[in-house]
């Protein structure tokens, strides 16, 4: 194998600039998409457990659609198809926006991940013993009150590991957005490789970003679970 290593080129411009921009975009996109996905996902997950059949159907439909279409296809739909389906004025306004790729990526990633989170919420809530519902209802709490004060807080604590791992999933999935023009870290690495032919250095920068983030989240999760082990919270039953 004939390869000349040159790690210093990563620190040179324009490579370094690309790396920084890539990491920054990846982190921003991931955090924002995760936040949105949590809000939407918790909502969808909860209505899937509602007494109303209509609400349950809406939730299930959402989950099945956004879970079964590959993320890349969803990104393409939002990027290529969605603007064309808008009424003319909206389409023009959309195309004039700053950072359309980032915005599209944000929408695509959030809605996709929301479906996954909704699934985890549903299975989290299903794992709650039925007696908790009965006890709450028996004291006169309504369905909404029961979910708000008893079920969701309980389920949430049980689901924290899953929710944190969803962040890591979004973080890795953000790499796909390079196809619609988002300047995230994997795309930056590919660009550097194209310019310098030093693929190992370039891709290492990207890999390092993902691996360090993964390791950090895993460690944080361990600490969180330890802290939240305030009596009776996480799966002691």
């Amino acid at each position: 194998m004939n390869y000349e290593f040159d790690w210093s080129l990563l620190l040179q411009e324009p490579n370094w600039g690309w790396v920084i921009e890539g990491i920054s975009n990846t982190v921003q996109l991931s955090l924002m998409a995760w936040g949105l996905a949590l809000v939407i996902g918790i909502f969808i997950g909860t209505i899937r457990m509602a007494k109303s059949r209509v609400l349950r159907l809406v939730g299930t439909t959402y989950v099945e659609i956004f879970r079964n279409i590959p993320l890349l296809v969803q990104l393409f739909l939002w990027f290529f198809v969605f603007p064309l389906l808008l009424p003319d004025d909206f389409m023009r306004a959309w195309n004039r926006l700053d950072g359309v790729p980032f915005l599209t990526a944000l929408i695509g990633l959030s809605l996709f991940t929301a479906a996954r989170i909704a699934e985890q919420i549903r299975s989290g809530i299903s794992s709650i013993p039925k007696g908790q519902f009965l006890a709450a209802y028996s004291t006169g709490l309504t369905e909404v009150q029961t979910f708000r004060h008893v079920i969701i807080p309980y389920a949430f604590r049980v689901m924290i590991p899953a929710i944190a791992s969803e962040f890591l999933t979004i973080f890795k999935n953000s790499a796909l957005t390079l196809t619609i023009g988002v300047a995230e870290i994997t795309g930056a690495a590919k660009t550097i490789e194209a310019y310098t032919f030093r693929g190992i250095e370039a891709y290492s920068a990207a890999s390092l970003t993902y691996m360090l983030t993964t390791a950090s989240v895993v460690i944080f999760m361990g600490w969180l679970e330890h802290v939240l082990r305030i009596p009776g919270l996480i799966g002691k039953r």
């Binding site: 006890a135 028996s138 004291t139 009776g232």
Partner: peptide, 15 residues
């Protein structure tokens, strides 16, 4: 809310 119920498995809210 005018009827109180006590369950076999207590069902206190663990959190």
């Amino acid at each position: 809310s005018n009827i109180g119920m006590v369950f076999q498995h207590f069902e206190l809210y663990p959190h």
